[in-house]
Design a protein around this nucleic acid. Structure first.
Lengths: 340, 340
DNA sequence: TTTAGCACTCGCCGGATGTGAGTGCTAACA
DNA sequence: TGTTAGCACTCACATCCGGCGAGTGCTAAA
């Protein structure tokens, strides 16, 4: 569809606009070493590119700006993912090697690292606990009337919940139930937990009939609250972007970033693995209609578990971002499959 | 120092400016029911108040704006803490009564509640785990080479840490050590934990000499990571304030709110109980030099444990904020001393 | 002591004007 | 046929100017 030369020009325009955030004129492109054409020729090509929808003009006598379609073409055909500098690789390696902390800590600091590496707002989802397997479940009394229930998965994830007991004397019986759960359900994945309780040991549990419901409800709550883990890093990075110099533009974005549930939806369908780039309108959330969201997935023991991603203006350094995401998601996958 | 009339005028000016965010003129004050003086008279008084440093003029022909000293006087002498509306009280009660969740959940959602009630950015610190007492400590193996260490306090707080074992065979011995800790150290406060280990069971522990250091280090890390809990709610509320319409003004504030450690320093000396109001420069952090920070403390079983607070422009609804903080901190104190 | 009157200040708004970057078009050139 | 030079045209942006209005400070009268 596009001639070789048009592609070159489009690439130069996008590259320049990504750097400068200002409409690119024909003269600017003409001065580039890669090309030896007069501004007039460039103008003709630009005019064609605009007609085809790859470029836009903010107003009649301004330069051209890439359209969403332009960015899309750039990402799909023209972009070269940039490798990380050795210094950066070293920095990442060192940060992660330092100590294999609780998985949550790794995940949390990943958001920060991703943000400083890309200079955009970063988010980290997961790892989804659903596919993790039950390792241990326990009730620890706090006093006569309260206890804390703890659930540990084989991935090192710990979920806790404080419960109020209707009657202190129940504690002993609940303990028995929990012991039973422990002896039967170790190794069952969290998502199957409720089902398996019902299937396998429902009968036995029902002997202690009145507590059955209670325990089941507790397990339910424990697994439910384990669902979403969301960390955001460098939320203030958007403030640096010239297209968000206006407070009114920033507000919906920051409001979105405050709500973990909404951020979780940024990831899109978690079924698709690898790098995903969503430019402007391609994104389902209205708050990021003027942004691009780039995500990558990382895996844990085979099953897919989580997403890391970056939010920035459509005028984003796609090459760099994709490079960083690719590298970091690999590091994470590697990390989670090495330990434990 | 200030006549009755000057105090009245100062109060009216501050009240009006808090509402409108615009310099207050003599005519505006003169029209108030509470006073029956001509604008000229008001002007004279205003002039005096300015000379004494309670008011400021943005420019020659604008109205007056309260100075920091003016706000300080207002807060100390003129302000009437407003009570919450019954509807709001009901709302709070319902939110907290719903279920006594893990303490962390309560604390986290408090930040959100506080923010929606005041319309300013809110933060919640603590509860400081230091004074909580050890309830249970445990090692749960994840595989051959890894395990997760869990520490539970009597307040229902759960601290966890994943550890890599140098040698799978150590697990049994570590288990023994942990059992020992459990039998001896239940009820010891977290802050004393390390000391007590040293004192009371150091000798016994040292029999398993090579693990002693390891276990001690682990305990150390567990307690260290438990130190600071910081939650911020409604960070985007500052964007609503007209004095922060400029991105450059917002940036340092939001950057500060991103860093939990810095937010923790907003609370100031935790020794002073009750409501504290810090106006502009009175605050140690430069990021909030143009803000006011109002904090309150809540207690848990006698010992002081945490702080809740609000960050907003110096032009803050002090009366309302103080009322809400007072009420909420009481609810929290009550809540934490009821359950468990 | 309070108030009316009045000149004065100064931020803000709207319109006019000039500048410069960049375009589109046409015609000439290779 | 593709490329280029030339030129008129457009339009955002900055600057300047004048008028408006809110608000002050001062003076003199009540």
């Amino acid at each position: 569809m596009l001639t070789e030369r048009q592609q070159l020009i489009l690439r130069l325009i996008v590259d320049d606009y990504i750097r400068s955030a200002e409409p690119v004129g024909s003269r600017t492109i003409s001065k580039r070493m890669e090309i030896h054409l007069s501004p007039a020729t460039i103008r003709n090509e630009m005019s064609d590119l605009e007609e085809m929808g790859y470029l836009e003009q903010p107003h009649t006598s301004a330069g051209r700006v890439p359209s969403q379609k332009g960015y899309r073409f750039y990402v799909d055909h023209l972009l070269e993912p940039s490798d990380l500098k050795p210094a950066e690789i070293l920095k990442i390696r060192r940060l992660f090697r330092e100590r294999l902390d609780a998985m949550e800590h790794v995940v949390r600091q990943t958001a920060g690292i991703l943000s400083t590496l890309t200079n955009y707002t970063a988010f980290v989802l997961g790892p989804m606990v659903d596919e993790a397997k039950l390792r241990h479940i326990q009730i620890i009394p706090l006093g006569e009337w309260a206890a804390v229930a703890i659930l540990v998965t084989d991935t090192g994830h710990v979920e806790k919940k404080t419960v109020i007991l209707p009657d202190p004397s129940l504690l002993a019986e609940i303990h028995k139930l929990v012991d039973l759960l422990n002896s039967r359900l170790i190794g069952v994945s969290i998502s199957e937990l409720k089902e398996r309780i019902e299937q396998e040991i429902g009968k036995e549990l029902r002997r202690h009939a009145d507590h059955y419901e209670r325990v089941l409800g507790l397990i339910d709550e424990l697994t439910a609250s384990a669902e979403e883990q969301v960390y955001v890093g460098g939320a203030t990075k958007i403030l640096e972007q010239p297209e968000f110099r206006d407070v009114e533009k920033i507000k919906p974005l920051l409001v979105m970033l405050e709500d973990a549930h909404v951020v979780a939806r940024l990831a899109g369908s978690p079924s698709r693995q690898g790098i995903q780039v969503r430019i402007g309108d391609e994104n389902p959330l209205s708050a990021v209609r003027e942004c691009s969201v780039v995500t990558a997935t990382y895996r844990m023991r085979g099953g897919q578990v989580g997403t890391i991603g970056v939010v920035g203006p459509t005028r984003m350094e796609y090459g760099r971002v994709i490079g960083v995401l690719q590298y970091l998601s690999n590091v994470l996958t590697e990390l989670f499959n090495r330990g434990a």
